[in-house]
Design a protein around this nucleic acid. Structure first.
Lengths: 215, 215, 215, 215
DNA sequence: GCCTAATCGAGACGGTACGTCGTGTCTTCTG
DNA sequence: CAGAAGACACGACGTACCGTCTCGATTAGGC
């Protein structure tokens, strides 16, 4: 990930030691008390070697993190869309609160605010594929009749992920399975309600906004 | 905000110059190219003075930011809950993309990931009051019959704010008035749909977990 | 000493407290770990008050030190020049190794290297008067026939004081009464030997230069 | 000198630039207006590099100074002890009044008052070896019959160096070749005279006091 | 199975910023 | 209304990491 010189001669031992040291230190000290120097020392690797293969600390973390993210939040398809979404979101929630992945991800999120190149990489490699996978999963549910036809699926996905991050970053604690279940249930019900009359109007291209009439 | 020694002898001139310099530099260089030294130099203030009154760079930014946030995203009450929410969220979205406040807020969000003390301060001073004000606004709408009785109002607020932050941080650009309108409309509709049979509660603790089967 | 504004309204209490605090701190921490701030705090006096009456830390020390120096190294006159010189030099040596005066004097000597104004003040107030008093004491001994007529008295005084300072600063420890006695004895003997043929002057300018062939 | 990590990888370029910059600044501003920061800036060297190899500013100065001291005050041996001592002391006197070495040495002397570690280093590296070399030079003169047998040579050396430092620090200006010649002449004569009568007195333990019969 | 070139560990280097300390001045409030 | 209390601008401190850069010493492939 984000590595630069392609080489067959690269030492796999150094690579693994670096990634492992990065995660260990992240657990022990928290993301931003980790330094490249400390990673190098812990891994028994020279700083030069780290900078040869990764652009910065966050690059190392991103590679270390990516390797686990996909594994823990799969898009299983049991046929029950609600159960599948709960499983998926619960995986994400659990990951966010499990060292060293939570701290590592926090660090990545944190740096995305300043580092546009990183942000693009994260979006392209992590966010967008998973976002689209989620939309796709909903689309299959739609085909199976579990979600009404006109529903705004991308918005639905944002309504699922958004609160999870919002709580994680801004409201903090206590995202348990119950709150996840409530969220999933609400969003799924909203799709039924939100399938608009038929005449759908002006919203963002592709989105079915409905002109906000309430009753 | 987060300042320590309370003093009547504090120089208001230094305080203002510091906050102003911080925001200026944030616009010019972006949050994390701003240093305490640069703020001090720009403000014509000594580093010692900054460290006397704020614990760190982000403390300065938080105070500077707080002063404008409340002003730009008021909870007006025109009687039309949808319009009011759109106005409110649009204010927030605009703020997030307006220098220097967007960069400053990004910086604050970024640091909240590592700095638990800061995170607590932000939650207590910014997030929670505004979250509760939003719930309260919805409650008044409920009393006026614009929102059904059994709706889970705190969840509704998370559904409004969550996607805004999710897009801002993870999916990035292009939150315009149309997407905001779509979001607000969807969430409000979902409340109607989500209003549970009759016996259901609405508070966050104990939100109907588990049985989130859809139809 | 070196104080500036003449004032009848000066608080004697503040003056004493400052001098005492300075010497105390000098004993406790050593001269150059003493700060004006610490003196002010210890004395219960404001920094402003200190700076009003003394130009700097060393000014305070100099005043505090001067008050004791004269008392401890008097030019007694028992009639025995050797005994008197031994008493005098022993007083000086003892002072140099007695806290807080030793550290205070070391501090003063130390600062004289950089601070020409201080150096002048010290020379005028301390060194020169005492140097001349020493020459004068020798002159009286000369009149009493204890020192030969042609002797270079100023040089003799330098030969007495010089090694004391040289040892104190550069060769360090162990100046006891025995070494002082040896020094005094040697210098006094040298005056006998050194009294030149007859025509020789004794003042410092014009001291027999050049022809320093020995025998 | 006083450097710590021994390394083959040390940059000679940085070392030289640092020492040169230190001496230059000493000339321009005087010892204690020189800062480590300024040395680093002038030398194009990082502060870290300076602190890696020297414990402090005075450590740098000491190394810079040591390199020249030995060269300028050699113990030549022309066979004429008086001429040789004059040459030696004149070299020292000249050094003390020649920028940048005079200011540098003053700074070192000044700091020796507070910094026992430095004081030890200076004594071991500079003072003691040169003191002993001076004693040795006198001893050779003794063997050649230019100095009487029983003379207290270490005391003689103190009588030579002591007044030079005493004048330099406490009485200040005007040490020219004439005063040096007078001093040397006097001390050498005193050795002859100082071979004591027989009943000789109380000298310091260890020093050949008393029984140094001359002829 | 050598040879040679890239990669490796180690860590010194020029920098930038940190957060702290002390200076000497200036201001505010209090006894 | 003098003085304690202490905030202030300034500037240096010594430290921590940054990212770059030699250095030999492995350590692979390609010959």
């Amino acid at each position: 990930m984000i590595t630069s010189p392609s080489s067959l001669r690269r030492s796999e031992r150094s690579r693994r030691a670096t990634l492992d040291a990065a995660l260990e230190l992240c657990t022990e000290k928290g993301y931003n008390r980790v330094t490249v120097e400390a990673i190098a020392a812990r891994a028994g690797v020279s700083k030069k070697t780290i900078y040869r293969w990764w652009p910065s600390k966050v690059g190392v973390m991103l590679e270390a993190f990516t390797q686990v993210l996909v594994g823990v939040t799969p898009f299983v398809e049991t046929g029950d869309i609600a159960a599948d979404l709960r499983a998926h979101i619960n995986g994400l929630v659990r990951l966010l609160s499990t060292p060293p992945y939570g701290p590592a991800y926090s660090g990545i999120l944190s740096e995305m605010h300043h580092d546009e190149e990183l942000a693009r990489a994260v979006r392209e490699q992590l966010v967008t594929p998973r976002f689209e996978a989620a939309v796709e999963r909903l689309r299959r549910a739609q085909e199976q009749g579990q979600v009404p036809a006109g529903a705004d699926l991308p918005l639905a996905v944002e309504l699922l992920y958004g609160p999870v991050y919002y709580r994680h970053v801004l409201r903090k604690p206590s995202q348990d399975e119950a709150t996840v279940a409530a969220l999933v249930a609400h969003v799924l019900r909203s799709l039924t309600a939100g399938a608009p009359p038929a005449d759908a109007p002006e919203g963002s291209p592709g989105r079915v906004p409905g002109q906000g009439r309430v009753s």
